[in-house]
Simulated assay, not measured.
Amino acid sequence: MSSTLDPKNTQNVTAKTPDEKEVFKTLNVNKIYIPVLIGLGITVYLAAKEIDFTIFFDALKRSNWIWFIAAFLMLLARDAGYVQRIKMISDNELSWKSSLYIILLWEFASAVTPSVVGGTAVAVFILNQEGLSFGKSMAYVMMTALLDNFFFIVFAPLAIFVSNTFDFAVFPVISANMFNEFVQQQGLKGAFYVSYGLTVIYALFFVYGLFINPRGFKWLLVKATSFGFLKRFQSKATQAGNEMIIAAVTLRGSGFSLWIKAIFLTFFIWIARYLMLNCLISAFTPLEAVDHLFVFARQIAMWIVMLLSPTPGSSGTAEAVFCLFYVEYLREEFCAAVGILWRMFYYYPYLFIGFLILPRWITRINKKRQAKRGAKQ
């Protein structure tokens, strides 16, 4: 396993660009119906069982609408951060318009695929169609994935530390009989630590593959799929190894300052995303400084648990677990309604934005292709 990575030695390393037909199976406006139906199903269930709409609408009338505006601004700040980050790591090769399309379609792809699956191939395809080479597209998608995982790796222990320092439970105290309480609490903690552990392992593999030994990474994948029923995955393992080598070569020239800027921008993006919920809860319940820390820390724990959700965009899972984490700040009669409102802020808009801009983007890339063909003729 050679750790030498000279671009001249990678000429025979080839990787397939994402299959367009497969990409458009995911990047499909018809995909919005699945998460919407799941979300609506959970919403109807919660509405019938847990929401007292008279109390909720009364709370809505008395709410502080400045905080709703602040929540929306946090959402805009997060998206602006995403657009700035992808433009920055592409060394401004992408225009602002291309960067905006990329982020909105990437969010749409994430919203219609389970968190455990992700939308790497879709993201690579989108960047490639916006004018980046396949190698750069793969490298930048891997870089952003590593940066996002780094946020969780750093902030999850901080959430635990803060909860211990200020003596509050980062995992919710569930009101039930002792057996159910124990089972549910241990289940949440178990899901958190399993998800966090997988995130760390995933990040370490990326670090090893991108910065230490890309060829060794490929060798490990190929060897791991050399036995028994795993042999059927060997061609995909080889493909993944080649993609890592190409991405590693592309990122090899990235300066240290770029990574530092990208890390801080990533922290800004996720903090803005989480503060949106702080603002939303503040609209109904005044929060002191320590309460904001509590809400923020619990959201990190909740988000890591949601990473294991098998449903598109964590539909159903997010609505179901919201009140477990935040009923202490919101009355039981309308906690679920605020959870649905939370999803309406940060999740459902991207489904409908994707629905609106995807046809326009397809027309846009088709025009680019026609222009290239015309230039060659």
Rank of each mutant, 00 (worst) to 15 (best):
F152Q: 06
S137M: 07
L158I: 13
F134V: 01
L132K: 07
I153Q: 07
T144R: 15
P157A: 08
Y140K: 13
A159L: 09
I153D: 02
V162E: 05
I160T: 08
A139M: 11
G135C: 05
I153H: 03
I153E: 07
T144C: 13
Y140R: 14
S163C: 13
M138H: 08
A159E: 10
M138T: 15
L132W: 03
T144V: 15
I153N: 01
S137C: 04
F161S: 09
S133T: 15
G135E: 08
L132Q: 14
F151L: 03
V154A: 00
F134S: 03
L147C: 08
V141H: 09
L147E: 05
A139W: 12
F152W: 06
V162C: 11
V162M: 08
F134P: 08
M143D: 07
S137K: 09
D148R: 12
Y140H: 11
T144G: 10
A139S: 15
K136V: 00
Y140S: 11
F155H: 10
F134C: 00
V154P: 00
L158C: 03
F151E: 02
A156Y: 00
A159P: 09
F152I: 06
N149A: 01
K136L: 11
A139F: 10
Y140Q: 15
M138I: 14
A139Q: 14
V141A: 13
M138S: 15
F155C: 06
Y140I: 14
T144L: 14
S137T: 07
A159V: 05
L147R: 06
G135F: 00
F151I: 01
L132F: 05
V154I: 13
F161M: 06
F134M: 04
F155S: 04
V141S: 12
L146C: 00
K136H: 14
S163W: 13
A159S: 14
D148C: 08
L158H: 03
N149W: 02
L132A: 03
M138Y: 13
L158W: 04
Y140C: 10
T144H: 10
F161P: 06
V162I: 15
M142D: 09
P157G: 04
S133W: 13
V154T: 12
L147N: 07
